[in-house]
């Protein structure tokens, strides 16, 4: 479903601030794989996701989604294949537009936007049904501005928007990191439900090791722009947070002291 072949990305190349964010990363996701991505700050996790989404061009390698080489495809065209939820709850939705307008924008992801009325009565009914599944009472607030919702609510709606039109690939970039623990847990449970129900191929970055172990059938660990550890299936099931910490200190030669990861 997703093939990342030897992808490199260098920021500020040939300057004193040169930073190799991705150093020849290769990763293949099978249809229905749910991969969690962990690693310290600056490990290249977000860069990897943004490279797949097309936020910026890569400096080398290829990215293939569902058999289509998208390496040179601009971000808005790639959106046809990719659903995304960002870390910042403000990023995923248009704050000044209504809930139903936001959902309508997502409904047309990857489709031609023309001069037809953007929200029809049938759409409204569909949106209501979808929102009901969230159990937040949002189905009665279709014409509320998105900006008036809490961070958790916005993130939930963003998740809905990313998946209401089944994407070939779902990219989650620490989408619960900005939420309080209780809300984060709710959003994560919903993520699990939606991914399982729709059998979505998913790449999820998280800082929380427990979440990384709890969710998904595969896990990868990144460090300095490379994938340094990978586990799947039963091997992943048996992993503990301590195993991960140990693996990390082995590869990074003891430099591991990311307090955010230790605390979680």
């Amino acid at each position: 479903m997703l093939e990342i072949k030897n992808v490199t990305k260098i920021f500020n190349a040939a300057t004193i601030n040169e930073k190799v964010a991705l150093n020849g990363v290769s990763l293949t996701l099978q249809d229905g794989d749910f991969v969690t991505v962990i690693g310290g700050n600056g490990a290249g996790k977000s860069t990897l996701l943004n490279a797949v989404a097309g936020t910026y061009p890569v400096d080398g390698g290829n990215i293939v989604i569902d058999g289509v080489d998208v390496t040179k495809m601009p971000e808005h065209k790639r959106a046809k294949y990719v659903g995304r939820v960002f870390q910042d709850p403000m990023t995923g939705t248009a704050a000044d537009m209504w809930i139903e307008e936001n959902l309508s924008l997502a409904k047309y992801r990857g489709k031609r936007r023309g001069l037809g009325w953007s929200i029809k009565a049938s759409d409204r009914a569909e949106f209501k049904e979808l929102l009901k599944t969230l159990d937040l009472g949002l189905e009665n607030r279709l014409s509320t501005k998105m900006g008036l919702l809490s961070g958790g609510q916005r993130q939930t709606v963003t998740l809905l928007m990313a998946t209401m039109q089944k994407p070939q690939l779902l990219l989650l970039d620490e989408h619960t990191a900005a939420l309080d623990p209780k809300t984060a847990d709710k959003v994560l449970t919903l993520t699990k439900d939606i991914v399982e129900k729709n059998k979505l191929t998913t790449l999820m970055i998280t800082h929380n090791m427990k979440d990384a172990l709890r969710l998904g059938n595969r896990i990868i660990m990144m460090h300095e722009g490379r994938i340094i550890f990978e586990a799947s299936g039963e091997e992943k099931q048996k992993l503990t947070v301590n195993d991960l910490l140990e693996k990390f200190s082995q590869v990074s030669k003891g430099t591991f002291a990311n307090d955010r990861m230790l605390l979680s």
């Binding site: 989404a53 971000e75 808005h76 065209k77 959106a79 046809k80 990719v82 995304r84 960002f86 403000m90 990023t91 995923g92 939705t93 248009a94 704050a95 000044d96 537009m97 307008e101 924008l105 997502a106 047309y108 992801r109 990857g110 489709k111 928007m161």
Partner: peptide
């Protein structure tokens, strides 16, 4: 309207 409101989100929505 979406582009004026949130350009990153708009690109992500294609």
């Amino acid at each position: 309207r979406a582009t004026g409101c949130n350009i990153n989100m708009s690109r992500a929505q294609g």
